[in-house]
């Protein structure tokens, strides 16, 4: 059978520290995503860090606090939106004015931007953002599902 009792969370000390740090962790994830074309990092690593803030909230304050910020149906839609964003960015290159081939970096052909600036390298930051949304929401979904559905073995039954 499946146990559906709410998860009450940890002690107030852990909850307070987690409340202070979760914003900083989220900001660090956004930094890793947005500067993925300049410094080590990128969409996948940044997305996992963004998902870790929701994992932190689920472990410390119970799953209700995380689900209040990101309900399951919105998470499932955001997952598809991230994948669609990546595909749309790729498909826009097929348009003959922009390049004519799949995954053309059409913005970099028009204007590469200055190196070491955040507005450079064309479609790469946009792809990073799309992948980050997708990865973050996917890992949050899997973690929440594994926490919510717990199979309990009862002896002598």
């Amino acid at each position: 059978m499946v146990d559906l009792t709410p998860n009450r969370g940890m002690t107030p000390i852990v909850q307070t520290i987690a409340g202070w740090t979760k914003g900083l962790v989220f900001l660090f994830g956004i930094y890793i995503v947005l500067f993925g074309h300049i410094t080590p990092g990128g969409g996948f690593a940044g997305g996992v860090i963004l998902a870790l803030t929701f994992v932190l909230m689920t472990l410390c304050c119970g799953k209700e606090s995380a689900l209040r910020k990101m309900p399951m149906h919105i998470a499932a839609e955001l997952d598809s939106v991230g994948a669609l964003m990546f595909l749309v960015i790729a498909w826009l290159g097929v348009w003959s004015i922009l390049g004519g081939t799949f995954f053309t970096n059409y913005i970099a052909k028009w204007n590469r931007g200055l190196p070491y600036h955040i507005l450079s390298s064309g479609t790469i930051p946009l792809c990073n953002i799309a992948i980050a949304v997708k990865v973050a929401v996917s890992l949050f979904l899997v973690f929440t599902l594994l926490v919510m559905t717990r199979v309990i073995h009862k002896p002598n039954e």
């Binding site: 990128g42 990546f86 070491y116």
Partner: peptide, 25 residues
């Protein structure tokens, strides 16, 4: 070619973006 100073990201999302698409799929 790409304007990205991080060559790894340039390879992942420009030269070999098909691989990244497969990974995302």
């Amino acid at each position: 070619d790409t304007g990205a100073t991080n060559v790894v990201t340039a390879v992942l999302l420009d030269y070999r973006a098909y691989d990244t698409l497969g990974e995302a799929t």
